[in-house]
Design a protein around this nucleic acid. Structure first.
Lengths: 140, 140
DNA sequence: TTATTTGCAAACAGTTTGCAAATCA
DNA sequence: TGATTTGCAAACTGTTTGCAAATAA
């Protein structure tokens, strides 16, 4: 639970990071952002990049394309199916959503790609956790 | 490029790991599998679990629910949209697939969940890499 | 017999954190 | 001035790897 009201102060680093993210169209990772910011502020540190990106994501200013799970999980079922992840208890459940074959074909045709596989993951509260909700940090 | 023809040898460890994965319905992570196998073979090591799960995934005997990207990436665009990941060059592109709102509602109703967000990722060769394909390891 | 697989520990990669110095308001 | 933010280095977590000993075929 985070009830601390922390106010934000504008810094040179923050300004450059925000500017870089606004013009970036390539979904850069933290290290790439670091390199770009470093070219303008040579003394910036990677930790500052991480701290600021995390912060911006928390404020909804950008999306964090994290792995869907912290740790890799393994699934004995190998046919195409999709998962639901409970953000509170961490449970992963199979859904009954049917394979989105046409969608895959559409994305393939879009700009002449070749799609090998796709994945669809839902996040939220499982039916048992709905009753006992706690805090959640906004993340995608 | 992996042209080595490595043959597989059945071991006690492998047998137990396979059995555990067959009966598991909870998408366990490597550490969880380790604990389960360890209860039958106390001397087993985590590295063996990783090696075998990796191997099984490579043979299509199970699905690896990896994060969608190795590193976290950040996206300045915050409206609901989906991504395509090129397995060769690593590029991440936005797709024009419209938001799957109804699908999310369907999954919510399925067993009375509360869906907060979802993500859909496509993997394959981008249009420029189609022409210069190299090897890819099977992974999901 | 001998190539494969294991257990162990050390290496790795990405990310986070503690802390004193710098800096924004 | 005084709280926030930084840079640095060290810590952490999940995963991989090198190597000698164990083992399946």
């Amino acid at each position: 639970m985070n009830t601390t009201k922390k106010q934000s102060r504008m810094t040179r680093q923050k300004r450059v990071i925000m500017a870089e993210m606004e013009k970036a169209c390539d979904h850069p990772d933290a290290d790439t952002v670091y390199l770009r910011v470093k070219s303008k502020l040579p003394k910036v540190s990677l930790a500052t990049i991480y701290r600021n990106l995390e912060d911006m994501a928390g404020k909804g200013k950008l999306l964090k394309l994290t792995g869907t799970t912290q740790k890799t999980r393994f699934d004995g079922r190998t046919d195409t199916h999709y998962h639901f992840h409970c953000v509170q208890c961490g449970r992963v459940e199979d859904t009954s959503v049917p394979p989105l074959k046409e969608l895959s074909e559409y994305v393939a045709r879009e700009v002449d790609r070749e799609i090998w596989w796709h994945r669809l993951d839902f996040f939220g509260f499982c039916s048992s956790c709905r009753k006992t909700k706690q805090s959640v940090q906004g993340e995608v």
